[in-house]
Structure formats: structure tokens, C-alpha cells
Write a protein that binds this DNA or RNA. Structure first.
Length: 481
RNA sequence: GCCCUCGUGGUCUAGCGGUUAGGACAUCGCCCUUUCAAGGCGGCGGCAGGAGUUCGACUCUCCUCGAGGGCACCA
């Protein structure tokens, strides 16, 4: 049996981190088993599934490094792969269910149902479509047709009472439900569009999906889907319900927690290989103490047995640490290429200048965006925040700055090595060393507490600018002396 | 309310009846006699609780508690 898995997002914009991990697990599982990865668009929510939304979803998934063999944009033997293009197929099976009396048509509008349901809730009575159907009159049917032009009666699936149903789940074992916990449910709306729990079954069955790997939030609805499999005599697929990714406060990761989409992480300067690696390790473990894996290694190691049952908190700190590692291992040229892709501007200096800068700045970069932070002082006038100035004063650095200016001015051969030598030389002459030597120079020349090593910074801004900056700092310090 | 799932340090995890409970991120300290950062070394910190079963439970069973998810003409 060849493995066939699918990623079936509802394209409503950028891919959510949780969905991205589902896609990732499907992808790894497919590749590990030499199976087929299918991309299907569950776009029955027409309001939200715009063309732009589909575009950014495709961009995100490709950027992350996930590709697929069959489906949207690729075609295949079981198409079309967009639910909105499969309406005739859904209708065909609706007809079968209706004919076999496994479903029924209900002549109530959505609004009417809502009202009735509210009424029932108020009276503490249990709502059921079945009762409505049993008490439905010929008169109501006639009235529905007359009053609801263009609308069809809803189609409701009949749930048989008191049947045990088990979800065969590869990560949770056999999860048992009793059908009496469920009541009849709508499978086709009055507007003719089928509902998720129905459409997904038709698609998964017809597309011969063997393993459904998806988030745990779907587990409780799986019995409903299994009822439909059974009603249509479709063989059950195997399931793998993967735990949710949680925010630091242990609730479901949502917009109020900050960045939650793949696109946002790309724009913040995270590398796809870092996100890929990090996400793979969230809820899955190779049972090994290593942390860094290439895509190929993950593919060869990935199995569903090693998927974790407990939900996992998304930790941006660890992602950032991982990202730093991946950036540091890229060549400076490659880093620039990647950074250009997210719109970082390299036009103010030559390519050579940037490569040289990034060669030494690499180890400071947590994200690609940090390049802007590190480069900013080169393009901005030197200014002093009052607290930085106060701190600088505590070193009483005027003599040091003057001496250093003198030494740097007489430096003939401009190199990183020599700027460092000049600092040491100045220190020796004044008998200052360590933090007392380097830190005031850093504060005076950059106006900032962090960044490149100070001799590197001096090298990159050049002699003239260094002297100008020293003058400015000295002037600032003398002001209220 | 009903149903389902889960529970190892702050976080991600290894462990599948006998371990000084291992690793990583974060945090703290030290070192790198040259700063911040990076790096190296080290420290703090954990089996949710209670009953069983067993010579012996993080590991097996039950209960409690806690967390999350589902119960839509959303997906």
C-alpha cells in the first residue's frame, strides 16, 4: 500500500504556525514512506478564501520548504483539488445518502433553526433535527419553497443511536465513542454548499488518502466523519491526531500572542530551515539528544510513533537560538541574498563592504532583521541618549578619548588589526585596560552599549568619521565640565 | 452541562519496573587576563496529588486535581 497523505488548508491568509506543523508532519511522513503528498484547498468558506489568501498560503508553504506531488496547481488523477470545484461530486453522494434514507431534507431556513435552537436552550430542552423532521408538515415544505427563492432544503445526516465507533489513531491508540453522544447533523447547507465534516470525508475517501494527520482539535469530530464513511461504505483511513501548539500562557496560539503565522516569521528575519527544524521538534522527537537536523535527516528519522501526545508551548526563544545558529553557518553572500528577499536595503554601500561587515557581524545576528540594527550606526549621525552620556561620564574618559584620537589620527595603514592595536596602545600609554578601556570608547564612538566589537566598528566607519565622532563626544563631555 | 485528549524543571524533550531522572532553550555565576555580544565551563530548578499492584514505581491500575479540545447551515 502506498502512503497517501494530504494537507488541506482552508486558505484564509498566511499559514498559522499550527497548520504549518501539520503540513510539515504530513510532508515528512509522506517523504519518509515514499508516499504521495497531496495539497487540497478546503475553500468552501467563500467569504474568506480569496485569491490573495490562496496566494500567500502557497507562498508560505513553499518558503518553508514543503512541496507536494499531487493537488492544487499540480493536478492528478483524483481532481479537481479545490472543494469549490467539486460541488457536483458532493451532490452525487448526497443523492445516494438521501435515496438510502441515511440522510433527509429539512425544510427550515438557517435563521429559523437558530431561533428554535435558542428557544430550546432557554427551556433547557434538547434540540434535535430529527424531531423537527418528524413534525415537519407538507404546508411547511410548500412555504419554505415559496419564501426562500434559490435556497434548497438543508440535508441532514441521520446518526444511528447507540453504536460504538472507534477512531483508530496512530498517536492516541483506539479512541472509542458512542454514537448516542452525537445527534443528526447538517451535511449540506440551504445554499447548497456542503459542510466541512462531510466534504472532507468525500474528498479523503475519493482521493484514497491512507493517513489523516491533523491537529487534535479534529479528534472529537472524527466520529461524525466515520459515520459518513460507513454510510457510503468507504474504508476507514488511519488517523494521527497531533497535539496543539500552545501560546506561553497555555491557551491556543492566537493573534493576541504576537506572531502566529509563517509569513510573519519570514518577515521578522527567520530562516525557513530554522523554522522547519524547530517545528519538527515541537511535538515530535527523534529520541536523540541532537537539536539540529537537515530536512533530509528529518525525513529519514520521522515516524508517527515518535509523535508526542502532550500539547507543546511555542517558545520563540528557542526558535531564535536555532535561527542564530543557521544564520551563522551561512556565507555572508548568502545571508545578504536572504536578507534582500525580505526587503533589507543594501544600496548604501558596496557589496564588498557589506560582505566584509557581515563576516564579522554574523555572530551577532539572531535574525536577518538584526542586520539593520547593526548597520544603523553607520548611516546615522552620532547622538547620545542622556543615560548613555551619564554612563560615559562615570568613566571620566576625556583624556582617553583625546589620546585615542591622537593615536588613531596618526595611524597610517587602516586595518582591523591596526585599529585594535591602536586601542591597546592607547590603553598602555594611559595604563587603562579591560572594560575601562573598551567600554567608554564604545559609548563615545557609537552612542550605544551593544554592537560590533569596537575596533571593528571603527574600522568600518573609517578614520575621518572616527575622529569626527570622538570630537563630538569630547565636546559633549566638556559642555558642563 | 456532556464527550474526548493530555499531565517529567519556566519551556521543548529523553526515559517505556531497579537511572546520582539525561539533553536543549531560558535564567544565574565563572572563564575568555580585550568591553556588550558570541563561545567555553559550571550552578539553580522537575516526575501534579492520593490510593493501590510489586521486593521495587516517573514508568502499570484506579481516583482526585489541573490544562487543552470538541459538542455550528466555521474549517
Amino acid at each position: 500500500m502506498t502512503v497517501r497523505v494530504r494537507y488541506a488548508p482552508s486558505p484564509t491568509g498566511h499559514i498559522h504556525i499550527g497548520n504549518a506543523r501539520s503540513a510539515l508532519f504530513n510532508y515528512l511522513f509522506a517523504r519518509h514512506n515514499n508516499g504521495t503528498m497531496i495539497l487540497r484547498l478546503d475553500d468552501t468558506d467563500r467569504k474568506r478564501s480569496t485569491d490573495e489568501a490562496i496566494q500567500s498560503m502557497i507562498e508560505d508553504i513553499k518558503w518553508l520548504g514543503i512541496d507536494w506531488d499531487e493537488g492544487y496547481l499540480k493536478g492528478g488523477p483524483y481532481g479537481p483539488y479545490r472543494q469549490t470545484e467539486r460541488m457536483d461530486i458532493y451532490d452525487r453522494y448526497i443523492d445516494i445518502l438521501l435515496k438510502e434514507e441515511k440522510a433527509y431534507e429539512l425544510y427550515y431556513s438557517e435563521e429559523e433553526i437558530k431561533e428554535i435552537r435558542n428557544e430550546y436552550v432557554k427551556q433547557n430542552k434538547k434540540f434535535s433535527y430529527r424531531y423537527l423532521k418528524e413534525t415537519e408538515t407538507e404546508e411547511r415544505r410548500r412555504a419554505f419553497k415559496e419564501n426562500n427563492k434559490g435556497l434548497l432544503p438543508a440535508v441532514v445526516f441521520k446518526v444511528e443511536a447507540n453504536k460504538e465507533i472507534v477512531v483508530n489513531d496512530l498517536v492516541r491508540g483506539n479512541v472509542k465513542f458512542n454514537s448516542s453522544e452525537f445527534s443528526d447533523f447538517v451535511i449540506r447547507r440551504t445554499n447548497g454548499i456542503p459542510v466541512y465534516n462531510y466534504a472532507t470525508v468525500i474528498d479523503d475517501a475519493l482521493m484514497k488518502i491512507t493517513h489523516i494527520i491533523r491537529a487534535e482539535e479534529h479528534l472529537s469530530n472524527t466520529p461524525k466523519q466515520l459515520f459518513i464513511y460507513d454510510a457510503l461504505n468507504f474504508p476507514h483511513p488511519l488517523f494521527a491526531h497531533v497535539s496543539l501548539i500552545l501560546a506561553p500562557d497555555r491557551s491556543k496560539l492566537s493573534k493576541r500572542h504576537g506572531a502566529t503565522s509563517v509569513g510573519q516569521y519570514r518577515d521578522m528575519g527567520y530562516l525557513p530551515e530554522a523554522l522547519f527544524n524547530y517545528l519538527a521538534l515541537l511535538g515530535w522527537s527523534p529520541k536523540d539528544n541532537r537539536e539540529f537536523f537537515t530536512k533530509e535527516e528529518l525525513i529519514s528519522l520521522f515516524t508517527l510513533e515518535n509523535v508526542n501526545k502532550a500539547p507543546a508551548v511555542f517558545d520563540i526563544n528557542k526558535l531564535t537560538w536555532m535561527n542564530h545558529h543557521y544564520i551563522e553557518n551561512l556565507s555572508s553572500g548568502e545571508i545578504i541574498k536572504r536578507a534582500e528577499l525580505i526587503g533589507i536595503d543594501f544600496s548604501k554601500k558596496t557589496k564588498e563592504w557589506w560582505v566584509e561587515l557581515i563576516d564579522v557581524a554574523k555572530e551577532h545576528l539572531n535574525t536577518l532583521k538584526d542586520i539593520e540594527k547593526i548597520a544603523a550606526p553607520f548611516f546615522e549621525e552620532l547622538t547620545f541618549e542622556s543615560d548613555v552620556l551619564d554612563e560615559l561620564k562615570t568613566y571620566q574618559p576625556v583624556e582617553l578619548l583625546k589620546k585615542f584620537k591622537e593615536n588613531i589620527a596618526s595611524l597610517t595603514e587602516w586595518s582591523m588589526q591596526n585599529t585594535l592595536k591602536t586601542i591597546r596602545q592607547t590603553g598602555k600609554e594611559l595604563k587603562i585596560k579591560g572594560r575601562n578601556l573598551y567600554y567608554p570608547l564604545r559609548l563615545a564612538i557609537t552612542g550605544s552599549r551593544a554592537g560590533l566589537e569596537i575596533h571593528e566598528f571603527i574600522y568600518f566607519i573609517g578614520k575621518e568619521d572616527t575622529i569626527k565622532r570622538l570630537d563630538k563626544a569630547i565636546k559633549e563631555l566638556m559642555k558642563d565640565a
